[in-house]
């Protein structure tokens, strides 16, 4: 029997986090355009609302009113389902991200740590669900009955499976460091700024960040869409809100990955040089760190040119995989010796 207050707390947290996630996704589209504009001496969207802040809203309205197209010969069921599969996993993985390590107290009402659930196998949960998002892409690509879409979907699956390995192995190094699969524990283990995993696992951090780029199909690894070669890749044939769902999925995935990087390597909600910060400060610190990684996604996109697909594969299998294995081995050896 769950206590009502616990259920209510859970509902409040879930609402806030999901609304936040979707809004961050929307704002990211604006941020993407704004930052890219600034980097190119432009102004960016500035017509809708102050500083163009309402642009995502306008885009959303536009998406809703766009015509829904169904390619001839498409598998109708899968074609409709693919965007959902693509968007869902990243939305679900946000559930285990710990935004605080301390209990949040709202006017005397303790609603627990600010994460939707505290799962003791949080890392596994994230990896398991994260691995599903590739289905959305490959199903969308296949169901469109278009060569570009199919090639985009194939590339997406090849790339995501390759980098999943690196991702897992680098996360494993962190898990070895913390000795737990619970993200809460991992965050707690890096409470002091000197304990942050980034100092102990710089190589793993680097590879993890690169792998997140590949996992989320972001520049410079966005081969699944790759405009010059594949028109728009797996979502070539999509329009209207179905297309928007792919976008929401991509930006939620980015957000989750930024949160995950923060949790695994930057101490999560820990505030540098404060032993016992207030929970609000913790959330702020977490969001600041995650925000930096989100900015990094944009920053890198507008700086680096796209790789070649074989380069991407070579990097994944010939460089990152052995390095990650070695790193894990070294971590294990050192950990067992110390």
């Amino acid at each position: 029997m769950i206590e009502w207050s616990v259920l209510l707390a859970w509902i409040v947290k879930a609402t806030v986090i999901y609304l936040g996630l979707v809004n961050v996704g929307a704002l990211m589209t604006l941020a993407e355009r704004k930052f890219s504009a600034w980097m190119q001496y432009r102004i960016g969207p500035n017509r809708v609302g102050p500083f163009g802040l309402l642009q995502p809203l306008a885009d959303g309205v536009k998406f809703i009113f766009k015509e829904e197209l169904m390619p001839a010969g498409a598998n109708k069921m899968l074609f409709r389902f693919a965007p959902v599969i693509a968007a869902l996993p990243s939305m679900m993985t946000i559930a285990v991200i710990p935004f605080t390590t301390k209990d949040v107290v709202l006017g005397g009402w303790n609603i627990g740590t600010f994460s939707i659930v505290n799962l003791d196998i949080g890392v596994l949960y994230i990896l398991a669900l994260g691995g599903l998002s590739v289905y959305g892409l490959i199903i969308g690509g296949w169901a469109s009955n278009s060569k570009y879409s199919l090639l985009g979907g194939l590339r997406a699956s090849a790339q995501m499976i390759s980098y999943e390995l690196t991702l897992i192995l680098t996360i494993l190094a962190v898990v070895v460091m913390a000795g737990s699969l619970d993200l809460q524990q991992i965050a707690l283990s890096q409470n002091k700024v000197t304990d942050w995993n980034i100092w102990y696992q710089p190589l793993a951090f680097l590879m993890f960040v690169v792998a997140t780029f590949a996992e989320t199909n972001r520049h410079p690894f966005d081969f699944a869409e790759c405009e010059p070669e594949l028109v728009a890749g797996f979502h070539t044939e999509y329009s209207s809100m179905k297309f928007a769902l792919f976008f929401i999925g991509e930006y939620s995935a980015m957000t989750v990955m930024a949160c995950l990087t923060t949790t695994l390597f930057l101490g999560g909600p820990s505030v540098p040089f404060l032993e016992d910060p207030h929970w609000a400060l913790q959330i702020a610190a977490f969001l600041a760190k995650a925000g930096f990684f989100l900015f990094l996604f944009i920053w890198v996109r507008w700086t680096l040119p796209r790789f070649r697909f074989d380069q991407l594969m070579a990097l994944g299998w010939k460089v990152f995989l052995p390095l990650a294995l070695l790193n894990l081995l070294a971590t294990g050896v050192v950990k067992s010796l110390v």
């Binding site: 504009a37 600034w38 190119q40 001496y41 432009r42 102004i43």
Partner: peptide, 8 residues
């Protein structure tokens, strides 16, 4: 470059 004046 982000902090330079836009030419738009």
């Amino acid at each position: 470059k982000m902090f330079e004046k836009p030419i738009t």
